[in-house]
Amino acid sequence: MRVIVADDAVLLREGLSRLLAEAGFEIAGTAADHDGLLTLVEAERPDVAVVDIRMPPTYTDEGLRAAREIRARHPATGVLVLSQHVRVTYALELFGHDPRGVGYLLKDRVADLEELTAAVRRVARGGSALDPEVVALLLGRRQAADGPATMTNREREVLALMAEGRSNGAIARRLGIAERTVEKHIAAVFGKLQIPAHADDHRRVLAVLAHLRR
């Protein structure tokens, strides 16, 4: 699996590249800014680009804009965006109308190599990866807007893991319950949110994000 790493901080860029290489990924190249990243993706056509959300020259949202351009020009290349802080608006903008092959993680998550590599692989396969802290904030805002939640605590846990892009099997393993139980919780969640259930995990994530965005 070929990966490009883009970050203006040389220590983080090289450190992340080394971690991913040791985890079995092939590093196809590194970039320090928006233009360099796009040029490298055009030349190498990697499976995934891991991108810092803030890069030169303005250090605001160059990484986010680069991610959108990569997805538009090279839909076969997944993009995993890293951010220092939670920015819900960035997450919602990044996922847009199609969360396939897109991920948004906090930089703190880089320290958890298992979590990071799982997110890279999920995005490379066309899945989604949304940071748990972003999901928690989204759910908290939604609950505050709606008043007392009608979902049980377990259903909220399942919804959060769904929003992260995890499969039924992954949710079952994370919560230590049977996959059939996960399916029942998902059915209950969709029923309470009035969202039609769908077998496609990408559509599930999109439905959840659309609901949270309202």
Rank of each mutant, 00 (worst) to 15 (best):
H85E: 15
A124F: 08
Y104G: 00
A67E: 10
L64R: 08
A188N: 11
E155H: 05
G140D: 12
A67M: 08
V189W: 00
D201A: 14
G127C: 08
M1A: 11
A144M: 15
L212W: 06
L209F: 02
R204Q: 14
L20N: 01
A160H: 07
V205E: 04
P196Y: 04
A199W: 10
T58N: 14
D108K: 02
V102E: 05
G96D: 13
V3T: 09
D131E: 00
H211A: 15
G127D: 06
A43K: 12
R166A: 10
L193K: 03
G176A: 05
Q194Y: 09
A67H: 07
A178G: 13
E93K: 10
A23S: 09
L40T: 03
A111S: 05
R13F: 09
L138I: 09
A118L: 03
H85T: 14
Y90N: 14
V120W: 04
S128H: 02
A172I: 10
E133C: 07
G126C: 09
R87W: 04
E183Q: 15
T150M: 09
A6C: 11
E157L: 12
T60S: 11
L40G: 05
G147R: 11
R174Q: 14
A210M: 12
V110A: 00
A31K: 04
R141P: 07
A145Y: 09
R2K: 13
P148W: 01
V3S: 02
R125A: 15
E22N: 11
L12F: 09
R203A: 15
N168S: 12
D47V: 02
A31P: 03
F190G: 15
P99K: 02
R2M: 10
V50T: 05
A144K: 15
G169H: 12
L94P: 09
E183A: 14
G63R: 04
D146I: 12
R203W: 04
A32K: 14
M162S: 06
I177F: 10
I4F: 02
L37E: 06
P57M: 03
L206P: 01
D200W: 08
P132F: 01
I186N: 02
A28F: 09
R18D: 15
L137D: 13
S83D: 08
R65F: 11
G63H: 06
A149F: 00
V135N: 01
G140C: 07
S83I: 05
P132W: 04
L92N: 06
L130M: 10
Q194D: 12
E157A: 13
V3E: 07
A129G: 05
A170G: 03
T181L: 06
T152V: 07
